[in-house]
Amino acid sequence: MRVTRSTHSSDGTTPFHCVGLTVVLLIALAATTAHAGRPYPFDETGYLGAATLMPEWSATMGRERAQAPLLDACLADEDRCPSYYRGLRRLLTSAATLDGYRQISLINHYVNRKRYRNDRTEQIETPLAGEPLTYRSRWATLEEFVRRGGDCEDYATTKYYLLRRLGFATDDLRVVVTWDGESHGYHAVLAVRFDGEVLLLESDNTIRRGSRHRYRFIYSINENGIWDHAGSQDPQPAKETSA
């Protein structure tokens, strides 16, 4: 009996079919990941210097420290709470009993429920141009945000303050300013290093992991430092205006 070897399988597929299928799958994979960003680099890449080098941020940290004793007193004794801190007291005392991820989730939702309020702007002399221009508003402290609300960087900083209150380390938290390729505007999120992952806490209630975002990271800050991410990623922002 003569046995003929054939490259055809019993169902009629050939190696060419397999190669073709692989190419199609690779193209499909590339298409689905085309809009993914790079994971946030939670390391010392781009370290610019101490947080005190950013005057507005440094001043906000100073006001935050000055206002902290009032919240400390409120947490220790409810009778010493101003009325605007009663809700916050309930939040922090309840959150203290939760595990880390549920704390993150609770704080993210709490802050995102707050009133969005666009920054007021000020006229200042820029040190570079020497001409007045509309300057971004200051960052808000926790008390200022609780009483007045704020905009997206205030949402991110408030999550930062609250997670610090719950015992998260400064080194595991950074407020990250990003360029949002979808809305073509600057946006701020809180990056949290937790349980071996980097989580991005969004103002739309999502918690993004890894590269599941469309951001180009511009810079990050926390109480300790400033990190510059420009130059470590691909396309430049098209313009420097608000969304």
Partner: peptide, 14 residues
């Protein structure tokens, strides 16, 4: 660089 970074207007609402 830091002065330029601080001038960025971050107001996106989601």
């Amino acid at each position: 660089r830091i002065q330029n970074l601080e001038l960025i207007d971050v107001t996106a609402e989601k």
